[in-house]
Design a protein around this nucleic acid. Structure first.
Lengths: 211, 211
DNA sequence: TCCTGTTGGATAGCAACAGTATCCAATACT
DNA sequence: AGTATTGGATACTGTTGCTATCCAACAGGA
């Protein structure tokens, strides 16, 4: 298929596709003549993946590039791919050299150690969590580790279910997609349901009767 | 206190503070002379809130403005404040007129109805969830309502805990902050813990032994 | 009272991001 | 032969969240 057909089928403009090729999110088509190149089903799939990561996951192009480079690399294992993805989706909080920050970060580290979770020291989510602790405390809402129990329980259950559901024994491409879906897209599912559940809880607690 | 002191205490530059005033995130100080204005503790608190919403919640300035306008409005109830916040944090997916989309949206509506959740028709989270359904299905990972059970359970539990924990009987300002914290910041806590839990689950399933 | 420094207010500039738009010469297809 | 499409390059656009500058009017200390 030519680029115009790829454009039609993906719903993206030709320029956007060219842009993704330039940005190395999408491999070039195989040349079939000096001014022509052939695209196939894989390109279409890739575009769908890119759009999912951009629109649903709201990932910047640079992050997607890093993730896809890992996807491409056949030598990389599932757990490394997972790590790469986690690292790429950031956000990359750069902790200031502040005692409150250090304290929060230590709390996070202590929590993870206590739970016995196998998480790298440089996992960005550690700082992400520490950052929210700092903000919460600044606003006068101190966080203790016991406050987190419901979150920990919920997070652990969902994560277990997700990682357990990663396709296995399927072709690598499928497993890899499955992994990305589990991390990036499922996060959005959880967030959306969380918001809906909150609205319900808020309605029951604060809402008036609906006639 | 003058603006330079507010700057020192908040850690923001004078220009940034002026910018927030211009953007109506922060009320002007009370004029004390023709070229001077007084700021107080409330301004400092407000700045902390703004920074939390920006840095932790990653909300755009426009969203924060809408939220703070509701905070300011004494006539507004907790549940309306909640709705305003939800609506402001978006993201505002504009559903294309596509049969897949409509189907996904109907699934979402059916799920919410089945759960008996009290959620407005125009809650942005409905479209957010529908959007992920569309993307998941496009990628060849069909979602059924039963797949969502773990998410629903987790979301409901956490939300219940959060809304239950909103301060009550306290001064309005405190309750309002508590509400914002429950929605915007707790979401980040859940996300961060979710990522950490995923890494642990991934390590246990795919990781090698750590020496 | 003079002088240095800060303030409010306005305006302009900047860097990052994610595309869009154009242009061009070289083909394809009809 | 003539029209349309392609790859490749380059330039442009709009949004966002600040920064930087400028200015005249003061405030506060010497």
């Amino acid at each position: 298929m030519q680029i115009s057909e790829l454009s039609d089928r993906s719903g993206l403009t030709v320029q956007t596709i060219k842009f993704y090729i330039r940005e190395e999110l999408l491999p070039k088509g195989t040349p079939s003549g000096a001014t022509r190149a052939e695209y196939d089903q894989d390109h279409l799939e890739r575009l769908r993946l890119i759009r999912a990561l951009r629109e649903v996951g709201d990932l910047p192009v640079a992050a997607i590039r890093r993730i896809l480079a890992a996807v491409e690399d056949d030598g990389i294992g599932m757990h490394e791919l997972f790590g790469t993805t986690q690292y790429a989706i950031g956000p990359h909080v750069t902790p200031p050299d502040d005692p409150h920050w250090r304290a929060a970060r230590e709390d996070v580290d202590a929590l993870i150690a206590e739970l016995g979770w196998r998480v790298t020291d440089r996992a960005p989510a550690r700082d992400l969590l520490a950052q929210t602790f700092v903000a919460l405390r600044r606003l006068g809402f101190p966080v203790t580790l016991t406050d987190l129990r419901p979150y920990v329980r919920a997070a652990a259950e969902v994560a277990e279910h997700e990682i357990g559901g990663v396709t296995d024994g399927a072709p690598r491409a499928r497993t890899v997609h499955s992994m990305l879906v589990s991390t990036v897209l499922s996060e959005q599912v959880l967030t959306a349901l969380h918001r809906l559940a909150q609205e319900d809880a808020s309605a029951r607690r604060f809402g008036e009767f609906q006639p």
